[in-house]
Simulated assay, not measured.
Amino acid sequence: MTIEIRDAAHDDLEKITDIFNQAIPAGNAEWTEQLHSVDERLDWWRGRVASGRPVFVAVRTDGTTPEVIGVASYGDFRDSTCREGFRFTAEHSVYLDESAKGSGAADLLMDALEAHARHAGIRMMLATIDGTNEPSIRFHARRGYVETGRLPAVGYTFSQWRDFVIMQLDLGHELSI
């Protein structure tokens, strides 16, 4: 399988929405029971682009028509009232189409996110993961992320309490203040 990573485009939003929505029924990646709309993902994409944060897609290019099979982004950690204190910390998300599991697309997306974050001066990259999502926890650990926090039963979806696991990677950015 040949995979390319590129910036997401407006024409990708329908597939990006589908990929996010694939994660909802499992209940352990998107802490919502409501499917996303293309308009909602459009607002999200526009917000990320306007703030200088990336939205990357993984594209399978070995077929007759290139196909988006994954999406990844990072944004500010915490809301705007805390932005100054957390300006060197970002929280990321990576989602794959069901057909892309095990393809290596997640690693390629993470490579692009981490490189972008380093270039942008981000020091800490955070992953926030449902405690039952063992594949994601193993994936991040394999990439050098360390579990730094676990908040038991802070979320509730699909009639189940959810644990919130925080994993972080030091990107090695040093400030020259």
Rank of each mutant, 00 (worst) to 15 (best):
I3Q: 09
I5W: 00
D7E: 12
D11T: 14
D11V: 14
D11R: 13
D11E: 13
D12K: 10
D12L: 06
L13I: 12
E14Y: 06
E14G: 12
I16Q: 02
T17P: 06
D18H: 15
I19Y: 07
N21S: 01
G27W: 06
A29F: 00
E30W: 14
W31T: 09
E33D: 09
E33F: 02
L35G: 06
H36L: 13
H36Y: 15
S37F: 11
S37Y: 10
S37G: 14
D39F: 12
R41H: 03
L42W: 11
W44Q: 11
G47A: 14
R53Y: 14
R53I: 03
V55H: 02
V55T: 03
F56H: 07
A58I: 08
A58Y: 11
V59G: 00
R60S: 11
T61S: 14
D62V: 11
G63Y: 02
T65G: 03
T65H: 11
S73F: 12
S73D: 10
G75L: 01
R78Y: 06
R78I: 00
D79T: 15
C82E: 05
C82K: 15
T89M: 08
A90L: 13
V94F: 12
V94L: 15
L96P: 03
S99V: 14
A100Q: 03
G102N: 12
G104Y: 06
A105G: 02
A105T: 01
L108Q: 14
L108N: 08
L109D: 04
L109S: 05
L109V: 06
L113K: 01
L113F: 04
A115C: 05
A115Q: 09
A115K: 09
A115T: 07
A117S: 05
H119P: 01
A120P: 03
R123W: 07
A127C: 09
G131C: 08
P135Y: 03
F139C: 01
A141M: 04
R142N: 02
R143S: 05
R143T: 07
G144L: 10
T148H: 01
T148F: 02
R150I: 01
L151D: 03
Y156H: 15
Y156L: 12
T157P: 01
S159I: 06
Q160I: 02
Q160S: 06
W161H: 13
R162H: 09
D163W: 05
F164H: 13
V165G: 13
M167L: 14
L171D: 10
E174A: 14
I177H: 05
I177L: 07
